[in-house]
Amino acid sequence: MISILQSYSTMLLRALGYTLVLTVLALIFAMIIGLIFALMNVSHSRILNIIGTVYVDAIRGVPLIVLAFFIYFGVPQAFKMMGFTSFRLPALQAGTIALAMNCGAYMAEIFRAGIESIDKGQMEASRSLGLTYGTSMKCVILPQAFKVMIPSIINQFIITLKDTSILSVIGYPELTNMGRTIAGNTFLSLQTWAIVGVMYMIVIVSLSKAAKRIERKIKIEDSEGKPRKRHRDQ
């Protein structure tokens, strides 16, 4: 085990870095996708409702690995068939798209539930003041909904981080992929996968701990009724 750490530690750390880059990129896009489709789902337009529902159902109905293959191998072929010169998205881009689309569908559901958890009276009060639907969403509903959603978002963050390992199948040099390379080179499967497992665990456990702390902080702020400012010296 020590020999692996000695010879491969920089590569493993770099691979972990790639994993994190992919996770963060995917999450940023997933948040945007999620917000857009959630807003479609809660809107009063039938058409937007349908588009939102179809997206969420379609993506949730397809395993991530299939989606990744489809984007990495399938889409370039489609372009070729349409007469474009053959091209292939680099693994990072294809991986980000697949992961963002996948995670975006789950985010859409988290956002939708968050928005729907806010009392209807909030929107009515805001509209009755002459504010538009968009302004009411942005200034009144979403800030409240976001607070409710934070635990679920962090949970989804952890799931997405783990899902990056699936993208080793399209050759993205993330941590699991690196584990396969090292195990193949050294024939030390037990040690390699133990190290890779522990690396994932360290990152994820520290994330969960941070999440718990944020959750607790929100709870305290809520019970004191004072976001941001806190006085605990009574």
Partner: peptide, 20 residues
């Protein structure tokens, strides 16, 4: 309608103040 609503204040049974 937003312009019209600017001229009509409304007070609700459950206050509906913005808690944030």
């Amino acid at each position: 309608i937003n312009k019209v609503r600017e001229d009509i204040g409304m007070v609700f049974q459950h206050f509906n103040l913005f808690p944030n």
